[in-house]
């Protein structure tokens, strides 16, 4: 089973002729993802790594039946690209691009919802169902199929934790990077629900960080609705207030969004919180053996 992406994923790459788009198209193809089309306005008719390029997402969908899109276009044009995908009937839109203005995202998130599509990101590494499909820039070799769902606001920290999971014999059903921006299309609670309903997933690793209250909402959701064990890690215990820590969303404003607060709320909700990244695997193993 797994969630969101798999054997049925037919992927269109928006921004396929750019440096990152082209490079990762190659890696996604090598991983076995069905990349059926690319889009770069004005470059229709070309091919990139054997994938046909179209001028519009609509044409790409008509010609190839693409149902999922991954976006590599620069920040200035990314909001437009997301809306184009949603308007063309794409169901799952994965936005890798970093640096999209938050006012744009406020409008885009609303538009995507009205179109009935799902947005992952922006400013995220994408998602992977090991052995079936990789959509985004995650390094495929560290993932192995198995019972753990992974949800994370980060990229490389996810890889760090996943490599420990894999080494501990805990493969992944699906791993999703939801993005480090203040406004994102899919949040922890959306995916917790999907993992709770996914028969293949037996436990979830949730990787959060400072800023916002998505982790607190996740904790409340887990307490109320989750039967499967969840283990969390929160980055930014040592982060100073009012300073943006790389991610646009990783900022403690006033007294809200601190790591201490998030850890406390998780622990009160019965969620084990790892002290260091490598502890996530051990805590999950323990929870699953019960």
């Amino acid at each position: 089973m797994a969630i969101l992406v798999g054997k049925d994923t037919k992927l269109v790459v928006q921004g396929i002729t750019g440096r990152d788009g082209s490079f990762h198209t190659k890696l996604m193809l090598e991983y076995g993802t069905k990349v059926v089309a690319g889009v770069t306005p004005g470059k229709g008719g070309q091919e990139v790594h054997g994938v046909p390029v179209f001028d519009t997402v609509e044409e790409a969908v008509k010609a190839t039946g693409a149902n999922t899109s991954v976006i590599f276009v620069p920040a200035k044009f990314a909001a437009d690209a997301i809306m184009e995908a949603a308007d063309a009937g794409i169901q799952l839109i994965v936005t890798i691009t970093e640096g999209i203005p938050v006012h744009d995202m406020s409008k885009v998130v609303k538009f995507v919802r009205e179109k009935g599509a799902r947005l992952i990101g922006p400013n995220c590494p994408g998602l992977i169902t090991p052995g079936e499909a990789k959509v985004g820039i995650l390094p495929g070799q560290i993932f192995k199929r198995g019972p753990i769902g992974v949800i994370s606001r980060s990229g490389t920290l996810t890889y760090e934790i996943v490599s420990h999971l894999t080494a501990a014999g805990l493969g992944q059903s699906t791993a999703i990077g939801i993005g480090g921006d203040p406004i994102i299309g899919t949040r922890f609670i959306d995916l917790l629900e999907m993992f709770e309903n996914d028969p293949e997933t037996e436990g979830v690793a949730l990787i959060g960080e400072i800023g916002g209250t998505d982790e607190q909402e996740a904790a409340a959701y887990i307490k109320k609705h989750m039967s499967k064990p969840v283990v969390a890690f929160i980055a930014g215990r040592t982060a100073p207030a009012e300073k943006r820590m790389g991610h646009a969303g990783a900022i403690i404003s006033g007294s809200s969004g601190t790591a201490e607060e998030k850890i406390r709320v998780f622990e009160e909700s019965g969620v084990k919180v790892a002290q260091v990244p490598e502890e996530v695997a051990a805590l999950l193993k323990e929870a699953l053996s019960k």
Binding site: S152, S154, G155, E160, I210, A235, T238, A239, G246, P277
Partner: peptide, 12 residues
């Protein structure tokens, strides 16, 4: 490399 890992490195 990466903001999340950078924060986790400070924390560790």
């Amino acid at each position: 490399n990466g903001a999340g890992l950078a924060m986790a490195t400070m924390d560790i």
